[in-house]
């Protein structure tokens, strides 16, 4: 255990894709139970940044500590962290050959070695929590986008993670379905879950976030409370961004 304050700690984290410098020295700390929204223009490194937390992307310099475990190439550390961090993807990434219920109960059965009946019972409870118990026996292709994303949230929650990551969870959804997903996320935030959400939904950010982080060119431009972020942004780049996205 590394003794440090905070459930997620980034210290001067760098990453390159070939010559392209995606993350240019990210430093921030998150406390347990906090909800942080990351926003910024596309290509600014927001997604890459949160995907380094469960090592779907590797960082090349700096230090990332998640719940006291430092992310290194050690496979045991990576697997330990992945069990504690759930992620929800923009494209859902449900397993198309499994039913909604099987999608959710798969990892508890195989990774946590839960009994099958118990894993399915727990999965059913989670599907109830995200509001689609009646879809349990359907395959992903038979569900709407919003329903698929809610199954994906349930799947991530099934491992009882301490931290939930959301990588633009509503960007691939029809406007009518965005609300049902955001509602689930709002309830999750209220239940005390530690969450990092990459999103363009400024209404959600304003209502739910404890903090908003603004990214541009792989750098953390501004870190602020929602109140200050929307009404009194410190940085000119933030002002420009806000004026562009809030215009419509």
């Amino acid at each position: 255990m590394i003794n440090n304050e905070g459930i997620i700690i980034y210290r001067d984290v760098h990453k390159w894709y070939g010559d392209f410098h995606v993350l240019r020295g990210i430093t921030f700390t998150m406390q347990k139970g906090e909800v942080v929204v990351i926003c910024g223009p596309s290509g600014s490194g927001k997604s890459t940044c949160i995907r380094t937390i469960n090592r779907l992307e590797e960082h090349q310099r700096g230090q990332i500590i998640v719940d006291g475990i430092e992310l290194t190439n050690d496979l045991r550390n990576i697997e330990a962290i992945r069990r504690e961090v759930g992620i929800v993807f923009q494209q859902f990434n449900l397993f198309p050959h499994l039913t909604a219920l099987q999608n959710v109960s798969l990892a508890p059965f195989w990774v946590l070695k839960m009994r099958k009946s118990k894993a399915e019972e727990a999965a059913m409870k989670l599907l109830e929590r995200v509001g689609i118990p009646e879809q349990a026996q359907k395959y992903p292709a038979q569900l709407s986008g919003g329903q698929q994303q809610r199954v994906a949230i349930a799947r991530a929650l099934a491992m009882s993670p301490k931290i939930m990551l959301f990588d633009e969870p509503t960007s691939a959804l029809d406007p009518e379905m965005i609300k049902e997903v955001l509602d689930v996320m709002k309830n999750l935030a209220r239940s005390g879950m530690t969450m990092i959400v990459v999103t363009h939904e400024m209404g959600f950010a304003r209502e739910v976030a404890d903090r908003i982080i603004f990214f541009d060119y792989g750098q953390l431009v501004e870190e602020n409370t929602p109140e200050e972020f929307f009404h009194n942004p410190k940085h000119d780049r933030t002002k420009l961004f806000l004026s562009q996205i809030l215009e419509y």
Partner: peptide, 11 residues
């Protein structure tokens, strides 16, 4: 994405 989703749930 299928690999990522599987790794992410701990498989």
């Amino acid at each position: 994405g299928q690999y990522e989703a599987a790794y992410a749930v701990g498989l």
